[in-house]
Nucleic acid binder design. Structure first.
Lengths: 340, 340
DNA sequence: ATTGCCGGTGTAAACGTTTACACCACGACC
DNA sequence: GGTCGTGGTGTAAACGTTTACACCGGCAAT
């Protein structure tokens, strides 16, 4: 306003202006009770007038807290991770934390660069939603003691916590629904082979089969890559190898839209000739043709809870180390009773 | 290895171990040429053995550079922004920069919190891909002198630079293609009303109409929100108000998939009865039913270039202040010649 | 009236770097 | 044999905070 703010206003400028020491300024900044009301007011005013903005890096130097967390995900291009990011961020910003994002793209070199960056920036915690990587990080945290929370990838170890969806339950739920609809020959199009979530969903699938006395046939399995193109090629493979399939469970919704496209090209109508089940319940699942029956994960909550765990860890609250959220079946139109 | 690293290894630990001063250690860290080869080797070794990791916040205190940029986007849930984020990040990490991400969600309160956070963290630059917000930021940067680059939202001002797609060309290109296919009554489903990109695309649409001597009819315009639900309701409105439309240009692909769904529900087949044009060329545009004809934006490059501009600004290179990328028409199957 | 306590405040050290400046030894030049 | 670089190194101040500790003055208790 009247006062023209010199670019970097420091605590000593404020102190001088208010006629107090820097210690006192610092105290009012931290709402310490041990400062007289009138002094506080005077400082408050100086703060305003000068347009003071605390220098967090400087503060970090002495407090050893940066109010920053690192978040590494497989790829932001997958809307599933986008929602996780939203969750993390919302609770971070509520608590005046910043989030440094890195998508690893499953590139090991990139991952190492990310770790190094997080270390050098002295982040207060790390959230890893990149299932492939989990293991790599164990080394890091042993040394740096920075708390890590893993999303959808529980692991054990000191300073390691996790939050995830019960993917075996999800896989079972999906498969069981298909079985209930009368399907007997059900395929599975996989995600990234080394992802825990892929492994778990497949386990759920096999569990459901067993539970209903259905044989497991490994030729019903097709590889995928958690992306539409993988769903497309996986479905094509299934179509040529096992034309008798009447339903297919896809690792995720992205895979499913690829499968849908393959089916469309092959002229097999969905769900009349083959039923398609997704996983994740992404936004567009409701908009595909036909709308996708899928398993909902609480993506946003996965992120929000992960961040909250980190916050608790900061403040010394010892939170549970392994959290799991239940998946939920969302019925739309891509699955129908098997023709007998 | 043999040496057990004490958790926070500082430059003085290294100096002691190598028998040199901290200044020398700092010099080898920065590859200063003015250090003897044998000394350098000795320091190098100490560095390794101690597992030293520089403390960036501490460094920032003296250099006044944090190697961090702030990125604010409308919402990470829109894959368009996800790609921008990827672009920013890729070039950031290549240059050892960190990116603090914030999605504003078009919430003004949230936006202010974001700005404050960026300020306090003393970011070296800010990238704004949240068109609505641009203006808000002008105030901030006047004071802090931190360089800002705006994506798809050029503005003028000191310290403000921009990179964007030529949206009026894009809008014109889209509309013109429909006109060439013989369409005469073409609707437009809008995005966020106050977004520059929405305004520009609409301008392009009107320009194409005028160019081909077609009248502009404001009842052919429907509101949207840049999301599928807005596309759905916008299309429904068009369907009831102007049943004679044979084509519709959508603000973006997300809007288009909503429109596609509305059309499907109404039993109007695409593209036979009505042609649908999108914008952005998101990944799933190739997977929708029918595959979407759309205008491609170089989303990734938008982000990458923005980050590069910031980097140039840091190093004093005076880069051009207003960059624009050309859009491109991607023909798939959602548009066909008008039935006469 | 002395003592003790305590609310309120200031002093100064510490955090981990970078860097201007001073210094030293040594060889080259005159 | 001085003088002058000059390559290599160390010293110490600075960056903006927080916080342990000391200090002071006044009030209550004795």
């Amino acid at each position: 306003m009247s006062r023209e703010a010199k670019v970097p206003v420091t605590i000593v400028d404020v102190a001088r202006k208010a006629g107090v020491s820097t210690a006192t300024v610092s105290r009012v900044l931290h709402k310490s009770p041990k400062v007289d009301a009138t002094t506080r007011a005077r400082v408050q005013e100086a703060l305003e007038e000068l347009g003071y903005s605390p220098n967090i890096p400087a503060r970090s130097l002495v407090t050893k807290r940066t109010r920053t967390v690192g978040l590494v995900i497989t790829t932001i291009a997958d809307p599933f991770f986008a929602d996780i990011v939203r969750g993390v961020e919302d609770v971070a910003i509520e608590n005046d934390y910043g989030v440094i994002l890195c998508d690893s793209n499953a590139d090991p070199e990139r991952e190492m660069a990310t770790i190094r960056l997080f270390q050098e920036k002295r982040v207060d915690g790390i959230i890893v939603a990149s299932s492939r990587v989990g293991d790599l990080y164990l080394g890091l945290l042993e040394k740096t003691k920075v708390p890590v929370v893993l999303v959808n990838n529980e692991k054990t170890g000191a300073y390691v916590y996790s939050i995830g969806t019960d993917d075996v339950a999800g896989g079972e739920m999906a498969t069981e629904y298909l079985i209930r609809l009368g399907h007997r020959r059900i395929g599975y199009i996989a995600g990234l082979a080394d992802a825990k979530s892929n492994h778990d969903r497949l386990t759920g699938y096999r569990q459901a089969l067993r539970k209903h006395g259905l044989p497991f046939d490994s030729s019903f399995l097709a590889p995928g890559n958690a992306r539409p193109d993988g769903g497309l090629s996986g479905m094509n493979q299934l179509l040529t190898n096992c034309p008798s399939l009447t339903a297919v469970f896809c690792y995720n919704d992205l895979t499913a839209i690829g499968a849908l496209k393959a089916l469309r090209i092959a002229g097999k109508s969905v769900p009349d000739l083959v039923s398609v089940m997704g996983y994740d319940d992404l936004l567009f699942a409701a908009y595909s043709e036909p709308p996708l029956t899928t398993i909902e994960q609480r993506k946003y909550d996965l992120g929000a809870i992960a961040m909250r765990m980190l916050l608790d860890l900061q403040s010394g609250v010892e939170s549970v180390s392994n959290n799991v959220l239940e998946p939920r079946l969302v019925i739309r139109e891509s699955c129908s009773p098997a023709k007998s």
